[in-house]
Design a binder for these strands. Structure first.
Lengths: 108, 108
DNA sequence: ATTATATATTGACGGTTGTCGATGAAGTCA
DNA sequence: TGACTTCATCGACAACCGTCAATATATAAT
């Protein structure tokens, strides 16, 4: 997931260059992770603390626990968040570099 | 479409605050417009010039003309691009503020 | 061991999306 | 007018997505 640091720029930069097919696929996949209101809200929640317990998220959102788990998996596989288990609980946190890279894709 | 200028920040900023439901819906809808490889590539293409004729896009991508037209509509309704007709041709261009606003949602 | 709790996975269902061919709308040029 | 070009819209279809209930996995506590 290190490759997130070198995401190309889509636009709006002097050095914007044509994307290769793998590059545009990769970028679209990462944007797709943010293309759902619940996942946007989860990112927003994680941003408010170093890490957040899944149990807090299932309380916050009026969605079933499997649905929250599903959205966390999508964000995890996109490299935007990471998790660690401590005891029975799972804690999620942002991967700031990944989000900064995605941000960088939208301009300088 | 002016409201794009005041998109809230998702994360990674000191002043990141909880999103309202309309805000997260709005943000997700805009990210969804970028959640497709072809649309990412279109944005990338538009970034290389002041405006681009649809006829150039249908040549560039190996997709049917209706499919390109569909993607342009999605981007237009998301406020990321705008178009004008001159004669038989339609020219599309980026809405830089909209993309900058989306970029701003990912951090300061 | 058993029981309880937290999270992940599976399977299924309805709604959405990307794609195309066919058609329509609007302009251009003989 | 009529033939031609460019782009948008419509209708259809397969694939994908968000959601839930049920189940599985793993840890903790008694």
């Amino acid at each position: 997931m290190k490759s997130i640091a070198v995401l190309p720029t889509i636009c709006c930069s002097p050095q914007t260059e044509p994307l290769t097919v793998p590059e545009r696929d990769e970028l679209a996949a990462r944007f797709k992770a943010l293309a759902d209101p619940t996942r946007v809200a989860i990112i927003n929640s994680l941003s408010a603390a170093d890490e957040v317990c899944v149990c807090n998220l299932t309380e916050t959102f009026e969605l079933s626990q499997p649905t929250i788990s599903h959205h966390l998996k999508v964000l995890r596989e996109a490299g935007l968040v990471e998790s660690s288990r401590r005891g029975t609980w799972a804690y999620y946190r942002l991967v700031p570099d990944a989000i900064a890279a995605l941000r960088g894709a939208l301009g300088p």
